[in-house]
Amino acid sequence: MTQAILFDMDGTLFQTDLILEPALEATFEVLRKERQWQGETPIEKYREIMGVPLSVVWETLCPNHSLELRNKSNDIFQQQLITLISKHRGALYDGVEETLAFLSERYPLFIASNGYIEYLAAIVEAYQLQRFIQQTYSIQSIASGNKSELVELVKTEHQIQGGFVVGDRASDIQAAKDNHFTSIGVRFDFAQDSELQYADHVVDSFKDIVKVI
């Protein structure tokens, strides 16, 4: 196996924004009831940092909370997300299934995501992505929480010599560069032009990935 394509999940394959607000709202509602939070849910702040490791998410959203409370908040958030996924409240981006079906006949495909194992498994199961994806890798596999090291893990385990990393954030682009892959940035919901400018290629439609590859 010499060439492969690695995909990010949130904001690349899966429209996380469809379940983000209700899951985050439910989490902070619990915190409000327990008098651990006052004011509105910081949804916009979360959108700004979407794609970073979840430990960073809760440090950013709840800087004055203890590690124990942050971990509890994250557990609630994860369960809310999974519940919404199981109810098909989320969705894949337009063209994802067709494009993955086409590419899977030509390349081994993998997911390398900052999402947690149970969360990613819920999406894969709900949308039957195992039809196209050989294996899903979570950032939980890497103690450092570094996306470049996660891509390196996939590369090593499957003896991949080159290929593509597809994602919407700077960490995806950097992971491609660090592992000598070609980066394809997707300009979807959470993407920022300031980060995508460093990608080797940028697409506005998932189907356009085929043209690049």
Rank of each mutant, 00 (worst) to 15 (best):
L13M: 05
I123M: 13
I85D: 06
Q80D: 03
L150W: 04
A191Q: 04
R89Q: 11
D200W: 02
I123Y: 10
E59Y: 09
E195M: 02
G167R: 01
P108M: 03
N146Y: 12
M50G: 04
S171C: 04
V124S: 05
M9I: 07
N114Q: 10
V151C: 07
L20T: 14
E152V: 00
V203P: 03
K87C: 05
A170R: 08
Y119H: 15
T83H: 05
E68V: 13
F164S: 07
E149A: 12
Q159G: 05
M1E: 06
L31F: 06
L150T: 09
I85M: 13
A191D: 01
D10E: 11
D17K: 12
G167I: 05
I85F: 12
R70V: 05
G163P: 06
K211P: 03
D208K: 14
L61C: 04
T83G: 05
F7T: 02
I142H: 07
Q78G: 04
V165P: 01
G167E: 03
S148C: 03
H158I: 09
F188T: 10
Q80R: 13
E48V: 11
I85T: 14
Q79L: 09
D193C: 07
K177D: 06
G167D: 02
I142M: 09
T99L: 04
T182S: 11
S104C: 05
F102S: 11
G167H: 00
R169P: 01
R169E: 02
D172V: 03
I111N: 12
I76Q: 00
A121I: 00
I85E: 10
T83M: 04
F181I: 10
L120K: 00
E44T: 10
L61P: 06
T12F: 00
K155I: 08
A4D: 01
N179D: 10
L18D: 02
F7Y: 05
L84W: 07
R131P: 03
D10L: 09
L100E: 07
I160S: 06
D8L: 01
V210C: 08
R89M: 04
A101N: 13
Q197I: 13
G115A: 15
C62N: 09
N179T: 13
Q128M: 08
I209E: 02
A122L: 12
D204A: 09
S141H: 14
A121K: 15
S104N: 08
